[in-house]
Design a binder for these strands. Sequence first.
DNA 1: CAGGGTACATCGGAATGCAAGGTAGTGTGT
DNA 2: ACACACTACCTTGCATTCCGATGTACCCTG
Lengths: 107, 107
Amino acid sequence: MNIQFKKGVLELCVLSTLSHKDCYGYELVQTLSADIKISEGTIYPLLRRLKNDGYVETYLQESSGGPPRKYYKLTQEGAAMEASLQDEWKRFARAVEHLIEGGGLHE
Amino acid sequence: MNIQFKKGVLELCVLSTLSHKDCYGYELVQTLSADIKISEGTIYPLLRRLKNDGYVETYLQESSGGPPRKYYKLTQEGAAMEASLQDEWKRFARAVEHLIEGGGLHE
DNA sequence: CAGGGTACATCGGAATGCAAGGTAGTGTGT
DNA sequence: ACACACTACCTTGCATTCCGATGTACCCTG
């Protein structure tokens, strides 16, 4: 899988997943990797960034069989960001589709 | 337009455009920018990379009203790369679509 | 002869993802 | 008791790609 394609998109994927339910970091790696491979070295700095920007909040929860899990919860700003990014992505994907199908010509 | 989304995709767009007809760098900037903004500072290093990797060949052609144009022509390897990248892109776009629609769940 | 369009090119900075490495807790096999 | 694997967190350095700024040079128009 082309690494470059993922740039910026993983942020959208994380926000989108969190818009359905709260998740902890390790869980996000497992869940997202079913569709798009993402490594721990990517997710943790990304989640830290999202928290710093106010798009998510965190809370700890004990776990049987491992250290406590840090859950991430979408804020209102995060939900707005998710919607915005999703819209941007769809417009971008359409533009690419247009270019690779039509060769950028008006057909 | 989210800059990060473009990472790696511009290479596909350039190869795809060249698969329809030979172009010179400045022309590619104008053509592609109708759909996806791309700057000269991006296209020239990209074209050099494609040439170094053997995906394109170049030839000069005089122009009325400006310096000579350096045309880029797709090689066989370039055409194969274009097909491969296009396939990768489509699978990637489907995976993203699946994630942001279904939230990564099996629905 | 100044300014704008054409057309090439390079450089440094910013953003992002990854592999590799580190810390701990829990459970299983021998 | 001890090694190993799995869970779960985290950081650091590296590679890649894109952009804005900048530079060169040609041609035409006012």
